[in-house]
Computed example of a mutant assay.
Amino acid sequence: MNKQIVDYIQTNREAMLTDWIEEIREQADERIIRVASDQVFIGTSREFIDLIVSNITDSNEEFIAKLSDFAEKVVRLGWPLTFVTKGLQTFGKIVFEGMQEAGLITRDNQMDIVYDFDKWLTPMTNEIVSMYSTTWERTVSLQKIALQELSAPLIPVFEKITVMPLVGTIDTERAKQIMENLLSGVVKHRSEVVLIDITGVPVVDTMVAHHIIQAADAVRLVGAKCMLVGIRPEIAQTIVNLGIELNQFTTKNTLKKGIEAALEITNRKIVNVEGAE
């Protein structure tokens, strides 16, 4: 790499960091700035500049290791790829303009400097994009797995009674997860009654009802009874208007009533004990 560029960056590193932070704050979406404290933003910005400089001073292996760590951090912070690449372009601009002001770039060497800048920044940009994309895809994949595990939990509330609270929309992929969790959970907890709580499901249409009916049928095949609870008035009206048949279900409007009914099915009930506080 051009020695003039290297010497200029190393000599003016702190001043360029200050200029870079000022410019990037003006360009950045306010939401990016708000996700972290001012101290974290400045610290991460310093790490970014250090990363860029390390591409000059470190071996390629050392640079890739630092880049991997930095990519993990900015993905967690929610910095979009466009923000990161724009930051790299901004740093390159600050270096170039600073060298011009210092008289290091002249008519005679300008084309050579521009060529050296391109040889330095373009491969680094490609490395950053590749590493960021890989890190982002891995993070999203792990989050997706975690969400799937949490999206349809089967919770034992009493002996032989389990509850599956559903929250959010139900698509085909999530319905498959619900089915798997139900069947494995019923066997694991030796459930006799399973309550599917749809209090947190915003819309129950024909497709959602079909998935729930399939789940209930599967539960019956493994020897348990399925109960649908949390049916709000507007959901009940929608079910009637769509002509959806839920005759095979015991239905209750609240989870509390559902648990009381489940206890009766398993020959138990909740009683008040005199003198209990």
Rank of each mutant, 00 (worst) to 15 (best):
M1L: 13
N2D: 12
K3T: 13
Q4A: 15
Q4L: 15
I5N: 03
D7W: 06
I9T: 09
T11P: 10
A15L: 04
L17D: 13
W20Y: 04
W20S: 01
I21M: 07
D29E: 06
E30W: 02
R31M: 12
V35K: 13
S37I: 08
D38W: 12
D38L: 07
F48I: 00
I49E: 10
D50H: 08
V53S: 05
E61I: 07
E61V: 10
E62H: 07
E62D: 13
F63R: 01
A65I: 02
L67V: 09
A71G: 02
V75N: 05
G78F: 15
G78R: 05
P80K: 03
K86I: 03
F91W: 12
I94K: 01
F96S: 06
F96T: 04
E97V: 11
E97Q: 13
G98T: 01
M99G: 09
I105L: 02
R107E: 10
D108I: 15
D108C: 06
Q110S: 15
M111G: 04
D112T: 14
I113N: 09
V114A: 15
Y115K: 12
D116V: 06
F117S: 08
T122F: 12
T125N: 13
E127A: 14
S130I: 02
S133Y: 13
E137L: 09
S141H: 11
L142K: 13
I145R: 04
A146D: 11
L150C: 09
A152N: 02
A152R: 00
V157S: 00
F158K: 03
F158C: 06
I161Y: 09
M164I: 00
V167L: 06
G168F: 00
D171P: 02
D171T: 03
E173Q: 15
R174D: 00
K176H: 12
K176L: 06
Q177W: 05
Q177T: 15
M179F: 07
E180W: 01
E180G: 04
E180Y: 04
E180F: 10
L183E: 01
G185Y: 03
V186I: 15
K188E: 14
H189D: 10
L195Y: 01
G200P: 05
P202D: 07
V203S: 10
T206Y: 06
M207S: 03
M207Y: 11
I212L: 15
I213A: 04
A216M: 14
C226S: 11
G230E: 03
E234A: 12
I235P: 03
Q237W: 11
T238R: 08
T238H: 09
V240R: 14
L242P: 01
L242T: 00
G243K: 04
G243S: 05
I244M: 08
L246F: 05
F249S: 08
T254V: 07
L255I: 11
G258P: 02
G258M: 01
E260A: 11
A261M: 13
I265E: 07
K269I: 01
K269S: 07
E274R: 10
G275A: 09
E277G: 04
